[in-house]
Design a protein around this nucleic acid. Sequence first.
DNA 1: TTGGATGCAAAGCCTTTGCATACCT
DNA 2: AGGTATGCAAAGGCTTTGCATCCAA
Lengths: 145, 145
Amino acid sequence: MEDIISNAIDKLKQKEYKLTSQRELVLRVLLENEDKHLSAEEVYHLVKEKAPDTGLATVYRTLELFNEFDFIHSIYFDDGRKRYELGSGLMKSHQHHHLICTKCGSIIEVNEDLLDELENRVSQQHEFKVINHQLKIFGICKNCS
Amino acid sequence: MEDIISNAIDKLKQKEYKLTSQRELVLRVLLENEDKHLSAEEVYHLVKEKAPDTGLATVYRTLELFNEFDFIHSIYFDDGRKRYELGSGLMKSHQHHHLICTKCGSIIEVNEDLLDELENRVSQQHEFKVINHQLKIFGICKNCS
DNA sequence: TTGGATGCAAAGCCTTTGCATACCT
DNA sequence: AGGTATGCAAAGGCTTTGCATCCAA
């Protein structure tokens, strides 16, 4: 994990962004909760545990910054707030999908990719240059059924 | 279209909801703009053209009601507001996906469904009972490339 | 007639912005 | 030292809620 962090720090410095303790902490929190799809507020609370003086606005600004670097990217589930996942700027980004339980709200990640064929067909039919995709599968999870 | 509307009205009345002119108008606006993924505010403006006294809160409440009846369902794209599509309570709901242009923001619907195989596999591996899915494909549309 | 539906305005969330201060480089 | 980053508080969007009035059944 330290590798990933120093890599990210290098990228920030290359573009003349400063390394502050808050930025590093936000990054660590995101990495330590990789699979949790944290919201800004959740990141804020986790950061506050280690650095109580941190402001919410800083967390928002940091998340936006990281988003620009593709360290993370945001996704809306159905509670109307942005949630964040690690992105291609930090590590090899694997294609993955989300299983969302409509009872308990838990989110399971699935690392499949069977969509290439569909993407190709769609590209041709609509002259649409595919960059990325996002698949959410709704249903009932193991625990809730 | 009148068939669909009277069918919907019947369903409302069966559950003792009143048919108001506002509710009917919202329904018509949704049907007339089936493929546009309107937001609440957009529905509101379209309704106001025909009934200027309508309040925004009524539109929100009506959309929530229609959502409970599965006349429509909401989906978040990336502008952070709910947008609505017709749902299974109104008509045979076809599986469809969205092509979202990251330049101009236009949304194209695609009526493919190649996801059954993936759904089956995922169901088994994770003991997850699939109800529905949502696929967004991001890229550059014909006009923007 | 009467309880649900409406319109208006206020309040609630989440997120962004302004500004004075703090702190990386 | 200088300018970016921060924290706080205020303001901005979108959505929901409270309340008096209205209206479909």
